[in-house]
Design a binder for these strands. Structure first.
Lengths: 339, 339
DNA sequence: CCAGCAAGTATTAGCGCTAAACTCGGACAC
DNA sequence: GTGTCCGAGTTTAGCGCTAATACTTGCTGG
């Protein structure tokens, strides 16, 4: 770890005060008179002193570090969130330790343990599965500050997240309003047990008096554009008569768009396509993509704020609260009939 | 930090051994006979013991944590790299602390100090500017393991990165081979003093006997698609007669592509466009985008491997080495004349 | 004129852990 | 029988820091 590190003791030796006096002076304690304080601080600066946070953490019992568990940082949405979260935490003096669970529960559990072992002051988690939270509940019970970034309202754990159900419902309702009756669903989250978007889809169908046809749902094994294309393949080979498709994220949708281009299916004339997340590239896809947008920055900021509240609450966490942010539709050419 | 944490002492009290015996047993010391070891390990498991890494770090003088400094995680390329790095580090038992410098030198310096204060065992850095490394050199001189993820070959600091100069040179040479003589450059990195891609561009021009015309270079204030579009605007308003444009990353190129679509400029017939990084969406842009690709995963893996070597070297770091990875061209419709 | 107090500083203990030094009771050799 | 060695632990010290307590002065007031 590099060469001899400068410690309080070194400043003490240099100035002739005791280590404790130095410690107090550097922390602006009123118990040390101003002239002494200045003297010590100058000596510290000359020696290029940097406090050892590890030692500090051991005694103060807080590390000023938050653990961020992501499923997969490749997803542009998570990426934006991670950035916004790091920013919000840094502004409050917290460091961000991050790890990806690779969408497996096992790794998620390992990650959470690793973070605990490193004594993070709290965690922000994108759980792999929104339902299997049994490894997280004990944490909350032990008064450990945890905020989820996707969740069920009835999870019993604090969460700040987008209302995916409502977003999906809005998206599908829009497709229905555009006159579509046979609406496909390309959903890569289902296999992780995350059914919010699918529920929104079903709700919109039901409200419009449309039947759900399981042939209209594809369930590709990942969430990249390649998978979106594969999902389209699966869907279209079934000859379901679909005239619109709702993809649960924009990467999938962009892949679906590409499938249409390669198969001579005109978008939106022959097929309307709707995404979710409104990533930067949605607007620049072959056909500009309609999508569901939400304020990543605000969500992240709120989640961090909530985490801070929990940390401040010490050993009496308040009742768990789930905040759902209502997303908005962004309509572009991929679903605009006149286009 | 949650409720009463289980310490070695608690296991000691429960089993009747001393804390030190417990510590040794949990670390599989041969000094403790197997039956005792098992007994102690069972007790630890029952109490749900998790070692306190902070305390461990204080005495072992290593935190098993690496600091990762990114300029801006929004960039899909950095994102991929971050993911690959986290994976490679986790595989070696290291945690990843990350922070973004927001492309300012000041924040980069603060971040590096913060990491040092947290006693990270080493750092991986995407420097904001490839030239201003004066805050990093002292680290190396103090035997602090640091590996850069972009750099000059003569930086005097270890680095593992893509050979951007060569990538740009290949890209521009390709455009020249396609018959272009007036080739624009949209480069958002120049303002940070990172001129590798521009140098590659110039080298290709020179080799082909083409003059450089400064009117052909645009320097937008950011690296998103919006900025790419703005860069095109700037370039085209100058009536330079450009028939091709090299954009220093894919987001810019996708923005440029969009500018062409909106202004009725046919790609590649009236204008060829070339990107850099080959992000997922390059293939799915309005016109599939030609780009420069490199193996992110391998680069990250190599960088981590190098960092491990430096860490293992203790207080006698080997001569700094810079490894440049040679990227490949991916030709798609945006530069293919026949398309 | 000295108890009482405050200001300024030093000493001590301890966070949870590890490494080094130490103890103690056999077994064994001669 | 006694010195030596070994196995199976225990005790002690210390990582760099903070918090609590202790100790000096010099002063004030009754």
């Amino acid at each position: 770890m590099g060469k001899a590190i400068v410690r309080l003791k070194d400043i003490a030796d240099k100035t002739g005060f005791s280590t404790n006096t130095v410690s107090l002076a550097l922390r602006e304690s009123p118990r040390i008179p101003a002239p002494t304080r200045v003297l010590i601080q100058q000596a510290a600066a000359e020696l290029h002193y940097l406090p050892n946070q590890i030692a500090k953490s051991l005694v103060s019992r807080q590390t000023m570090t938050i653990g961020l568990v992501l499923t997969d940082i490749t997803n542009p949405t998570l990426t934006h969130a991670a950035q916004a979260i790091e920013l919000a935490l840094a502004a409050r003096g917290y460091g961000t330790l991050f790890a990806t669970s690779n969408n497996t529960l096992e790794e998620e559990i390992r990650t959470v343990e690793m973070f605990r072992s490193r004594q993070v002051d709290g965690m922000l988690i994108y759980p792999t599965s929104h339902r299997q939270l049994d490894h997280i509940r004990p944490l909350r019970r032990a008064n450990y500050p945890v905020v989820l970034l996707v969740a069920d309202p009835d999870a019993g754990i604090d969460a700040v997240c987008v209302d995916e159900r409502r977003g999906a419902w809005k998206a599908v309702r829009h497709l229905i309003e555009m006159g579509h009756r046979r609406i496909g669903l390309v959903d890569s989250a289902a296999r992780h047990g995350n059914s919010e978007k699918r529920e929104g889809y079903l709700k919109a169908l039901t409200e419009a008096g449309l039947d759900y046809d399981s042939k209209l749902a594809a369930d590709p094994s990942g969430h990249t554009s390649k998978h979106g294309s594969a999902g389209m393949d699966e869907l279209m080979s079934r000859k379901t008569g679909a005239t619109a498709v709702f993809c649960t994220n924009d990467s999938l949708a962009i892949g679906a768009l590409d499938w249409c281009r390669r198969h001579g299916v005109a978008v939106p004339r022959d097929m309307a396509i709707m995404g979710f997340d409104d990533i930067e590239y949605a607007a620049f896809a072959g056909v500009p993509l309609s999508s569901v947008r939400y304020a990543t920055r605000e969500v992240s900021e709120m989640a961090v704020e909530r985490l801070m509240e929990l940390i401040a609450a010490k050993d009496a966490l308040p009742q768990a609260r789930v905040s759902l942010i209502d997303p908005d539709l962004i309509i572009r050419d991929s679903t605009r009939l006149g286009a």
